[in-house]
Simulated assay, not measured.
Amino acid sequence: MPQRPEVDDASEDALLQEAEVAKLDTNLSFSKVNYGQMAPHVNLDPRQGLEDAPSFDLYRSRIPMTLFRDIIAGIDKTFLRYGPMTAHQNEETRSQFLSPIFDCLVPLFGSHIRATPEARRWTTKGRVEYQFIILGTITVLFVEYMKVVGGATEHLNAVAQLIAECDAGDFANQRTNLHVPVYGILYDGNAFEFFLFSRNTKSPSQPSFFCGLLEDPTGSEIRMPLALLTGKSSALGFMRDLRLICEIIFDLLLKSYIECLTQYSNVSQKGSKSGSKWPSLDGWDAAIKSAKETLDICRQADQHRAAGEWEASNAKAECGMQMLGGSVIAVPRVRLRSVLDDFTECAAMVNRF
């Protein structure tokens, strides 16, 4: 495990406390929105039910077998405690099966990816939400669980909730001139879907909410099924589906991490030109270089996986973990800045709907 880089702990704690208060305020508003209200906000037609949403490409970044076994071990403990995974379990129980994904992937980034204080929160609408911030300041990834029952209408309303949450993250980022996309992940008890919120400031009338699309030799997939873990007979299908989902999530975390590092590097360059005291640009450059190499190597590892070259795939994935560890250590010490308090202002905006 890479060493934890130095950060300003006092400012980080203050940031997380502000995030908790801000999210309590915004949830009161966000929980009321529906797809008919939110779709026009991202330039989509509510009547088309996401059919008019543009797509963005999803990729798999291979993780080592040892890491995947750790995820499976965490799920196995949950299985022993709660029994088989069923569609009729409550949200709290069902979410326990999937929490090892984030418990194992997020620590790979040291302290640079952190869950907000209410990292696993059950809302009054029966949803479970995970929210993560990168480099302690930018909310870039939201994960939401919803009830299995309810059909297409509830599914679209869950998407509307996700749009509102992503919009709040984007609003906070824009206030500090940090222009990064916000990724959203939705699990409905049957399958995972991946989304991206990225506002086009040059063409405001263009859609700003995108659906993730995974291309493979058999076709294109938007929904990634996750077979229920009901016993030994279903374990193989569950693990096959789970590995795909884990590696898509890891790829998105890597991309988000690189995007945020790049933004901070740009801010550092401007600060250096203006005479402000900023950490050495060499640290940012080294962190970005290693992170990009990690993404490239882990995607290559997946290509070996697709070709059935299992040893080469795992060796590449292990190499990627080493590169990521080097990136985490190279990130310069920075004083964390709070942007999540801007969620409170976004709550007033959402109240218009």
Score class of each variant (00 low, 15 high):
79 F>Y: 15
79 F>W: 10
80 L>Q: 14
81 R>D: 10
81 R>L: 15
82 Y>A: 11
82 Y>Q: 08
82 Y>V: 01
83 G>T: 12
83 G>D: 13
84 P>C: 13
84 P>S: 15
84 P>R: 14
85 M>C: 10
85 M>Q: 11
85 M>P: 05
85 M>Y: 07
85 M>R: 03
86 T>Y: 06
86 T>I: 05
87 A>W: 02
87 A>T: 13
87 A>L: 06
87 A>R: 07
87 A>H: 09
87 A>F: 08
88 H>I: 09
88 H>Y: 10
88 H>M: 09
89 Q>C: 07
89 Q>H: 15
89 Q>T: 13
89 Q>G: 11
89 Q>A: 07
91 E>N: 07
91 E>R: 03
92 E>T: 13
93 T>E: 10
93 T>G: 05
94 R>K: 11
94 R>T: 15
95 S>T: 13
95 S>D: 11
96 Q>A: 05
96 Q>F: 07
96 Q>M: 06
96 Q>T: 00
96 Q>N: 13
97 F>N: 02
97 F>R: 04
98 L>S: 00
98 L>K: 01
99 S>C: 01
99 S>M: 12
100 P>K: 03
100 P>W: 01
100 P>G: 10
100 P>I: 03
101 I>P: 01
101 I>Y: 02
101 I>S: 01
102 F>T: 10
103 D>R: 08
103 D>T: 07
104 C>I: 00
104 C>E: 07
104 C>T: 09
104 C>N: 06
104 C>M: 02
104 C>Q: 13
105 L>H: 03
106 V>C: 06
106 V>A: 04
107 P>N: 12
107 P>I: 03
107 P>A: 07
107 P>C: 08
107 P>M: 09
108 L>M: 04
108 L>R: 07
108 L>K: 10
109 F>A: 08
109 F>P: 02
111 S>G: 09
111 S>V: 14
111 S>L: 07
111 S>K: 03
112 H>S: 05
112 H>G: 03
112 H>Y: 14
112 H>A: 05
113 I>P: 02
113 I>W: 02
113 I>R: 02
114 R>V: 12
115 A>Y: 10
115 A>E: 09
115 A>V: 03
116 T>P: 04
116 T>M: 04
116 T>W: 01
117 P>W: 04
117 P>V: 04
117 P>E: 03
118 E>A: 10
118 E>P: 08
118 E>G: 10
118 E>Y: 15
119 A>E: 11
119 A>I: 00
119 A>R: 05
119 A>H: 11
119 A>T: 14
120 R>H: 10
120 R>S: 14
120 R>T: 05
120 R>K: 13
121 R>P: 01
121 R>H: 08
121 R>V: 14
121 R>K: 11
122 W>M: 09
123 T>H: 14
123 T>K: 02
123 T>M: 13
126 G>T: 14
126 G>F: 09
126 G>S: 12
126 G>V: 05
127 R>M: 11
129 E>L: 05
129 E>F: 04
129 E>V: 11
129 E>N: 01
